[in-house]
Amino acid sequence: HNLTITQGKLFFHYNPKLCLSEIHKMEEVSGTKGRQERNDIALKTNGDQASCENELLKFSYIRTSFDKILLRWEPYWPPDFRDLLGFMLFYKEAPYQNVTEFDGQDACGSNSWTVVDIDPPLRSNDPKSQNHPGWLMRGLKPWTQYAIFVKTLVTFSDERRTYGAKSDIIYVQTDATNPSVPLDPISVSNSSSQIILKWKPPSDPNGNITHYLVFWERQAEDSELFELDYCLKGLKLPSRTWSPPFESEDSQKHNQSEYEDSAGECCSCPKTDSQILKELEESSFRKTFEDYLHNVVFVPRKTSSGTGAEDPRPSRKRRSLGDVGNVTVAVPTVAAFPNTSSTSVPTSPEEHRPFEKVVNKESLVISGLRHFTGYRIELQACNQDTPEERCSVAAYVSARTMPEAKADDIVGPVTHEIFENNVVHLMWQEPKEPNGLIVLYEVSYRRYGDEELHLCVSRKHFALERGCRLRGLSPGNYSVRIRATSLAGNGSWTEPTYFYVTDYLDVPSNIA
């Protein structure tokens, strides 16, 4: 807008934040220059609390790290170098490059900038070799853009010569660093050979998330399962459950009422301010606690030095998902009996873990797994792929695949051998790939016309006998059925096997 004052003059007093240069501009645009008398524009009460600059400061050096910015700028000295009290560095987070010096300023003089007072450097006698002032900004957020400017702080001049310097606002972004852990990993099994893994992005990506790394490792069953005799009275049979499938998407929606109208769909109840505040506090606490764990609990591995020492970490090797089922080394339970199943799973520490690289999504279907087997899954978020990966501390989750139908069934015939004193040795093959492992066998036998009897055969007993022995049988026709019990439950009964026990007292003698 054009402003013209045809008559009258300007009068400025007691404006401590208004620089004289701005008042002189007002004289020019209003056409009143030359009308004012000496005392109409006070030299001592206008701009006496402001830094009124008329020179431009330029930054000469900028260096960044993930949490620091090192700045240096060209030296500046007023005509009387004693008038320079120091520099004021202003900075704040700036997602967009549209910041002005006066953003967030209120009537009390406060604003949204963080201000650092910096002492002037030592003055050199040689004007050509003056030290460049600077400042190291610490405690910054990774991968965050900051708006920065600097200006001088000078003393009051009796001659009211307006001098000083100020830089333009520059924008500097800190470097990326390792992201925080992925949030809320959930693993479920939808079949006997697959596990579905879902997660949420890290709360602090500290860069642009480029991919996720998912490692999985087959877990050995508890050692007590191999040692305890679950045929003993009072000892509860062990059981394991597989990871249940995901709930429906509708039930997972946030901010939804727990109660549904019987007449149909209901609208979600909005969260109160107290609920939102509580969630923010919980989120802040979780982030602080995660940072504490990362800094205190997890110790970084030592990389190899120039002395030739090897990095103890196993090298990563990509495998196809079809090879995942046989990740671990199978060892027989008892070496003397080769027909026992290889369900003991000690994992070799030198073995390469299978892994998958996930790009542009937060889910993965891990296939080719062994049925009813526990897996430990390790999830890392990465925001750099080359020249070397920059990934987060791992988040861990466990899951067990679903049982395989008929995996616990005894394959092959049940054979028998009759000894003296009416002892019958029953023999059968253990299931080759049971659900988890076989903890015991149930032997059901009966003599024709009598009630059915049951015998429990422990895992250890089966390994020693290759089956079991029935003792003290009365003469007669017998039928026997056997079924295995694994961590997933009972298998199917075998087809009945028949044998006849004679009275050993009636056996004919070869003595003449």
Score class of each variant (00 low, 15 high):
371 H>C: 05
312 P>A: 09
374 G>E: 11
218 R>A: 08
349 P>V: 04
442 E>T: 04
256 Q>K: 09
294 H>R: 09
416 H>N: 12
229 D>G: 07
468 C>A: 07
388 E>A: 12
377 I>F: 06
402 M>C: 15
241 T>E: 06
229 D>R: 10
305 S>F: 10
230 Y>L: 11
497 T>G: 08
312 P>S: 13
218 R>M: 14
216 W>Y: 08
260 E>G: 03
292 Y>F: 04
392 S>K: 01
215 F>N: 15
207 G>A: 04
439 V>Q: 04
400 R>Y: 09
290 E>T: 06
440 L>V: 14
344 S>L: 07
280 L>E: 01
490 N>V: 02
285 F>S: 13
367 S>F: 06
410 I>Q: 07
293 L>Q: 15
370 R>K: 12
419 F>S: 09
476 G>K: 00
357 K>L: 14
284 S>Y: 03
495 E>M: 03
366 I>Y: 01
306 G>W: 13
324 V>F: 03
371 H>Q: 11
244 P>Y: 10
240 R>N: 09
372 F>H: 06
502 T>Q: 07
402 M>T: 05
414 V>I: 12
396 Y>S: 07
409 D>R: 07
345 V>M: 09
395 A>T: 03
326 N>T: 02
461 H>G: 09
407 A>M: 13
437 L>M: 04
229 D>H: 09
354 P>V: 07
390 R>K: 15
394 A>R: 10
474 S>Y: 13
476 G>A: 02
268 S>E: 10
211 H>W: 12
246 F>I: 06
471 R>F: 14
296 V>T: 11
333 T>G: 15
206 N>K: 09
292 Y>H: 12
428 W>S: 15
283 S>K: 02
268 S>G: 01
219 Q>W: 06
229 D>K: 09
491 G>S: 09
462 F>A: 07
314 P>E: 14
413 P>H: 08
283 S>W: 04
254 H>W: 14
243 S>A: 10
264 G>D: 09
263 A>W: 02
259 Y>W: 06
445 Y>A: 15
304 S>I: 03
258 E>R: 11
225 L>Y: 08
362 E>W: 13
473 L>H: 01
344 S>C: 11
280 L>H: 12
307 T>I: 04
353 R>T: 02
508 P>L: 14
356 E>H: 11
281 E>L: 04
458 S>G: 11
382 C>F: 01
237 L>V: 11
303 T>S: 07
471 R>S: 05
310 E>H: 07
290 E>D: 15
391 C>S: 02
432 K>N: 03
483 R>V: 02
466 R>S: 11
323 D>Y: 15
473 L>P: 02
303 T>E: 14
237 L>E: 13
379 L>D: 01
485 T>S: 11
374 G>N: 13
462 F>Y: 05
415 T>N: 02
425 H>W: 02
340 T>D: 08
251 S>D: 12
345 V>T: 10
224 E>L: 09
286 R>C: 10
453 L>D: 05
328 T>F: 10
502 T>V: 10
366 I>V: 09
288 T>A: 14
367 S>Q: 10
344 S>G: 04
302 K>E: 14
317 K>W: 03
306 G>T: 13
214 V>W: 01
322 G>T: 09
225 L>R: 09
499 F>Q: 00
383 N>E: 01
275 Q>G: 08
244 P>S: 11
277 L>Y: 03
292 Y>T: 09
424 V>Y: 08
352 H>S: 03
382 C>R: 00
383 N>A: 10
204 D>H: 15
266 C>L: 12
218 R>W: 01
301 R>L: 10
314 P>Q: 06
234 G>N: 06
295 N>V: 06
443 V>C: 02
266 C>A: 15
398 S>G: 02
454 H>L: 05
316 R>H: 08
311 D>K: 15
342 S>D: 09
371 H>F: 06
443 V>I: 08
427 M>T: 09
379 L>F: 05
397 V>L: 14
455 L>W: 05
217 E>C: 08
264 G>Q: 13
366 I>S: 01
380 Q>C: 10
265 E>L: 09
441 Y>S: 01
223 S>L: 06
240 R>L: 07
364 L>S: 11
300 P>N: 04
507 V>Q: 13
409 D>F: 14
284 S>E: 08
333 T>D: 06
377 I>N: 01
300 P>E: 14
341 S>Y: 15
421 N>C: 03
287 K>I: 04
495 E>R: 06
240 R>C: 05
245 P>L: 12
386 T>V: 10
235 L>C: 11
403 P>Q: 08
458 S>Y: 12
273 D>E: 12
444 S>Q: 10
245 P>G: 12
290 E>A: 14
497 T>S: 05
244 P>M: 14
347 T>K: 13
238 P>S: 07
398 S>M: 03
496 P>L: 13
397 V>T: 02
450 D>P: 03
500 Y>A: 10
439 V>W: 09
281 E>K: 03
455 L>D: 02
327 V>H: 10
479 S>R: 14
452 E>K: 07
444 S>L: 04
363 S>A: 09
509 S>N: 15
271 K>F: 09
470 L>I: 15
287 K>G: 09
350 E>Q: 04
416 H>L: 11
419 F>C: 14
435 N>K: 00
407 A>W: 07
291 D>I: 11
308 G>P: 04
208 N>K: 15
421 N>E: 15
377 I>L: 11
287 K>A: 03
463 A>W: 11
334 V>K: 12
389 E>C: 08
401 T>Q: 00
228 L>Y: 03
484 A>G: 14
466 R>Q: 02
275 Q>H: 06
345 V>L: 10
227 E>M: 07
421 N>R: 13
393 V>H: 14
264 G>N: 11
243 S>N: 12
258 E>T: 12
385 D>K: 10
478 Y>N: 00
434 P>Q: 11
321 L>N: 11
506 D>T: 13
455 L>K: 06
448 Y>P: 12
226 F>W: 02
502 T>G: 09
325 G>F: 10
490 N>K: 03
371 H>L: 06
424 V>C: 13
388 E>Y: 15
319 R>A: 05
435 N>W: 00
467 G>E: 02
274 S>Y: 10
241 T>R: 11
281 E>V: 06
373 T>K: 12
377 I>R: 00
353 R>F: 03
322 G>W: 13
488 A>T: 03
431 P>G: 03
311 D>L: 10
394 A>M: 13
415 T>S: 11
333 T>Q: 06
261 D>F: 13
337 F>V: 08
319 R>S: 09
306 G>D: 12
340 T>V: 06
403 P>A: 13
472 G>C: 04
286 R>Q: 09
392 S>P: 04
385 D>Q: 03
483 R>Y: 01
371 H>P: 13
339 N>P: 13
489 G>N: 13
489 G>P: 02
436 G>W: 05
309 A>V: 10
469 R>K: 02
316 R>E: 09
446 R>W: 07
253 K>P: 15
494 T>G: 01
249 E>T: 05
390 R>W: 11
420 E>P: 14
308 G>S: 12
378 E>K: 08
400 R>K: 05
448 Y>D: 13
371 H>N: 05
233 K>V: 13
498 Y>K: 15
429 Q>M: 15
399 A>I: 11
470 L>P: 00
274 S>V: 13
340 T>Q: 06
219 Q>L: 06
389 E>W: 11
368 G>K: 02
438 I>C: 06
490 N>D: 02
414 V>M: 07
427 M>R: 09
